[in-house]
Structure formats: C-alpha cells, structure tokens
C-alpha cells in the first residue's frame, strides 16, 4: 500500500513531538487557565462591579473565554507554522534533506498543515475543557466550538508559513511577532467588543481572521448573535487559509527549488 507522501511528513513531525511533548502539554493547559484566572476572574472582578450591557449578562469571564479560545488557536498556529518553516530552511535544514527524497515542497507544506490541524484540535479541546471547568460555558457547546477555533488557527497557519518561507533574517521574524501578532491578539475582539475602538479602526479589525473566529466561538458558546452570516464568517476564514496555502506553496518552491 502506498501512503500519501505528505503523511510521511506528519509522521516525522510526530516523531520529534514525542521527544518534546512535555513542554507543549504544560503550555496547552496552563495558558488558558492562567489567562482565565488573571483576566477573566482578576480583571473581571473589577469589570463586573459595573453593569456592562456590551459584554452581555453573563459576566466578563463568560465573555472572555470563547474569544480567548479562538485567539489562543491563532497563537498556537502562528508559532507552529512559522518557526518550523524558518528552521527547516535555515537552521535545522531538514527541508533540504527532505526534498532530495521523493517528497515535494507541496508534500512538506501539506504535511505541516495536517500536523498543525492535529495540534490545534488538541489545544482547542483542552481549552474547551478549561472553559467547562471554570463554568464559563457548557461542555457540549465548548466542544462544538473546537472546529471553529481550529479553522481560525488554520487561517493564520498557512499565511505565516508563507511569511516564514519568505523571510531572510531572524530579526524580521522577531519584529513581526511583536509588531503584528500582539495587535492581532489584543484587537481580535476577545478582550472587548471592537465597537470600543475608534470608528476608523473597526473595518481594519474586521479584516483579521481572528475577529471572525472570536465571533464564531462566542456565538457557539455564549449564544451572542453573529455579526455577519455564518457562511460569510466561515468563507472568510477558509479563503484566508486557501490564499495563504497558495502563497506558502509558491514561496517554498522559490526558496528550495533553485
């Protein structure tokens, strides 16, 4: 039987993961717990002193948790997509070894994307469990949001893989992380409704896939109305992922097949 070649890449990623899973398991569980304790409960204690219609009836923790689930998927995807591509080309150089076998650059990319999807499903499920434990939503609804969070992550994974394949200097990577990832996280709508922002910023925030993911997860878990139709939201995430995929495939070919 012939296994698809991209699954061989997934297998290789898994083999490395078996060596390093301890660190990621801790972050997978601790991140949501720490954020929900610090922001949801700590800052929530200050926020819930006042009545805030914009945040819904359920309190700040319940408002924050679903949005943070989507935003965390985004952060996981960004790390898992960018550094492996960068080191694969530049430091570990495993991409050069892999393309001298029957693997193609498309196999590398597909394998990486499958692997990140698996990781996202895992990370988002952990988040759903934490939401349920904190009483910020029902377990069933939180689980239903897992695919939405995963899709949000994928909408970032492929463009970031393209970026990492294009980048020439590590300092550019680091600057990008501080310059764009943090605003994406802060202004995703996870922490506060984007109506709070000055009017001219709102349309810019709507361009970020993170906002669509936050909107979807909050709709599923908290039951707040969707801002756009569900098909627009899903379509936008899928389209971003597809565009990123195309760019990453092109960029990897350009870097490796010279």
């Amino acid at each position: 039987m012939n296994t698809p070649r991209s699954l061989m890449v997934v297998e290789a990623e898994y083999r490395i993961y078996r060596r390093t899973w301890r660190g990621t398991v801790l972050t997978t569980w601790l991140r949501p717990i720490l954020f929900l304790v610090a922001m949801g409960m700590g800052l929530g204690a200050l926020i819930d002193r006042n009545v805030n219609q914009a945040l819904g009836e359920a309190g700040y923790l319940a408002f924050l948790a679903p949005g943070l689930m989507a935003a965390s998927a985004m952060q996981t995807a960004i790390t898992e997509a960018s550094w492996p591509v960068r080191t694969g080309i530049k430091w570990r150089k495993n991409y050069w070894a892999q393309i001298s076998t029957p693997l193609t650059t498309n196999d590398l990319l597909t394998g990486l994307m499958i692997w990140i999807t698996i990781r996202l499903l895992f990370v988002s499920t952990a988040f759903a469990v934490v939401i349920w434990v904190f009483g910020a939503g029902s377990f069933g609804k939180a689980l239903m949001a897992v695919p939405a969070a995963t899709l949000t992550g994928m909408a970032f994974a492929s463009p970031l893989a393209a970026f990492a394949a294009w980048v020439k200097e590590d300092s550019t990577m680091i600057a990008m992380f501080r310059f764009s990832i943090i605003p994406l996280f802060l202004f995703s709508g996870a922490f506060f409704p984007i109506e709070q922002l000055p009017d001219f910023l709102e349309p810019i925030v709507v361009l970020s896939p993170a906002w669509h993911g936050v909107d979807l997860c909050r709709w599923i878990i908290l039951g707040t109305p969707l801002t756009l139709s569900i098909w627009t939201e899903l379509g936008y995430l899928a389209a971003t992922m597809a565009a990123g995929w195309w760019a990453a495939a092109r960029q990897l070919r350009k870097r490796l097949i010279v």
Binding site: L43, I47, L186, F191, F192, Q196
Partner: peptide, 11 residues
C-alpha cells in the same frame, strides 16, 4: 487595547 478598549468597562 487595555486603556481604550477595556478602560470604560473597568472605570
């Protein structure tokens, strides 16, 4: 984000 976005909720 925190000052403008959350500020009005916190007071």
């Amino acid at each position: 984000a925190v000052g403008v976005g959350l500020g009005s909720f916190v007071g």
